[in-house]
Design a protein around this nucleic acid. Structure first.
Lengths: 166, 166
DNA sequence: TTGGAATGTCAACAAGGCTGACGTAAGTTG
DNA sequence: CAACTTACGTCAGCCTTGTTGACATTCCAA
């Protein structure tokens, strides 16, 4: 308590209560954010982990396993379990690297791209509707705050697409 | 592709690329959002589930198990496992309802309140810093978009505090 | 008095994290 | 060339946190 009361440091309203509201907003909004893809994934024997993998392979075709690991922040064992099922189901294919043959470059197949589309269509629809309801200025603020909330490493991943294929 | 191009429906910039950025912003920001409490919880034999329970009991002292179930959206078995450990560790206590003796009203003990404080201090610190960095207008937009992204039921929980103790 | 609601509990299972250990192919460097 | 390191795969086992199903208890309300 006794934190930023009001308009103290020129930025105002940082009361604990306001911050608590922000925290709960993240909690409840994230639930909504994931609910549409979750509905699609259930019954397909896929989970959020598959969604994440498919999303980032779509975003950065040809990305390597190592890149994906650093973006997703999981262990290779965990990611591998997911990738294996995606390979088996013909959603993703891996091509051996040209310059470095140890690397596997990951690509969505047509089937995988179709899955990605159905997942992101659902998620985009919600995002679009929220954006429309809130208006352009709010969207700008939304992005600004989220960006400030990220860990620096993740923020670089978010902005980035740096370092070769990623 | 070929979604809302620009300034078509009076709200502009709803390109798929913009929406994808929004989606990834949620993903990366949520990671940051949970990382500080997660660090505290690990080693204490507690996880996010415990954090959520403690948070909402703190927010609404005297809330019932049923209320908590509807907020958290998990099964009673799952919640019960978490509550049991919190009881055993003397973090939470349950008092039998006065009017309805089937209900258990949940309260944080002093020890539980201390845990809650350490968790929310960490989370609020990040939220505060993000708010400061982004500025008041951005914060307003942030909250507006998140609210629009929630499912209607959850939005009511978020705004609410309605129905007696909750 | 009886049905249903609120709660607790036991058992079993699955997803998806984790660690540790080991193997292999392929670069890299002395 | 030999030795080290990197990128990746895999096996085995463990944990948390979600799930379903079944069953008991308590107690309000019709």
């Amino acid at each position: 308590m006794a934190e930023g009361s009001n308009s103290s440091d020129g930025l105002l309203f940082l009361t604990d209560e306001q911050l608590r509201k922000g925290i709960e907003a993240m909690f409840f909004a994230y639930r909504g954010f994931t609910s549409d893809p979750d509905r699609i994934l259930e019954g397909l024997d896929y989970g959020r982990a598959h969604h994440r993998a498919v999303h980032f392979i779509h975003r950065s075709p040809g990305t390597t396993v190592g890149n994906l690991l650093s973006i997703l922040g999981v262990t290779k064992q965990s990611l591998n379990r997911v990738l294996r099922t995606l390979f088996e189901d013909g959603m993703v294919e891996a091509r051996v690297g040209k310059t470095d043959k140890r690397e596997r470059h990951l690509f969505l197949t047509d089937k995988g791209a179709a899955l990605e589309r159905s997942l992101s269509d659902a998620q985009r629809a919600r995002m679009r509707s929220a954006y429309r309801a809130a208006g352009p200025q709010a969207v700008q603020g939304f992005r600004t705050v989220l960006e400030a909330m990220m860990d620096p490493d993740l923020r670089r991943q978010y902005q980035g697409l740096k370092e070769n294929g990623l």
